[in-house]
Simulated assay, not measured.
Amino acid sequence: MRHFDIKETLESKGLEFDQPYRVLEVCNPQEGKKVLEENQMVGYFLPCKMVVYEGAGTTKIGLPKPTALIEMVKDDSLKQFAQDMEDRLITCMDRAV
């Protein structure tokens, strides 16, 4: 898993950003390959990401929902795949809290 520290990146470019903010790449390579073989337009959404940041004194964690993203490619054959992936990612987030 790769992560990007947005606060650190912005500050390295001379921009102030006072809040910890990380983007985590959480894509499973086997699943990514499988879905790309079905429809290469899904590559616009890969790798799957989660965002972790602080807000109002608490840690927030979220993600762009694969079911919403997959609607953009208008390929009904991928809807169940997106739902399965979303369910697994939400389970991971729930365990992290």
Rank of each mutant, 00 (worst) to 15 (best):
M1A: 15
M1E: 11
R2C: 06
F4S: 05
F4Q: 03
E8Q: 11
T9M: 14
T9V: 15
L10V: 06
L10W: 02
L10H: 05
S12M: 04
K13S: 14
K13T: 06
K13E: 15
K13R: 14
G14D: 09
G14V: 10
G14P: 01
L15G: 03
F17Q: 09
F17S: 01
P20E: 09
R22E: 10
R22Q: 00
V23Q: 01
V23M: 03
V23H: 06
V23F: 03
V23G: 04
E25P: 04
E25L: 03
V26Q: 01
C27L: 07
C27A: 13
N28A: 05
N28D: 10
N28M: 00
N28C: 02
P29V: 07
Q30D: 14
Q30E: 14
E31Y: 03
K33M: 08
K33E: 10
K34D: 09
V35M: 01
L36Q: 04
E38C: 11
N39M: 02
N39F: 06
M41L: 15
M41T: 10
V42T: 08
G43R: 06
G43I: 04
Y44G: 12
F45I: 02
F45R: 00
L46S: 00
L46T: 01
L46R: 00
P47I: 03
P47K: 07
M50A: 11
M50I: 02
V52D: 07
Y53A: 03
Y53K: 02
G55R: 13
G55I: 09
G55C: 01
A56G: 07
G57S: 01
K60Q: 13
K60L: 14
K60F: 15
K60C: 14
I61W: 08
I61M: 06
I61A: 01
L63N: 10
P64K: 04
P64I: 00
P66M: 06
T67Q: 05
A68D: 14
L69V: 06
L69A: 09
I70Y: 00
E71S: 12
E71F: 01
V73R: 01
V73H: 02
D76K: 10
D76Q: 11
D76L: 08
L78D: 02
L78Y: 07
L78R: 04
F81C: 00
Q83A: 13
Q83G: 03
D84V: 10
D84W: 02
E86Y: 09
E86K: 01
E86R: 06
D87T: 14
L89C: 00
I90V: 15
T91D: 15
C92Y: 12
C92P: 07
M93W: 01
M93T: 00
D94R: 12
D94G: 03
R95N: 15
R95L: 15
A96D: 04
V97I: 13
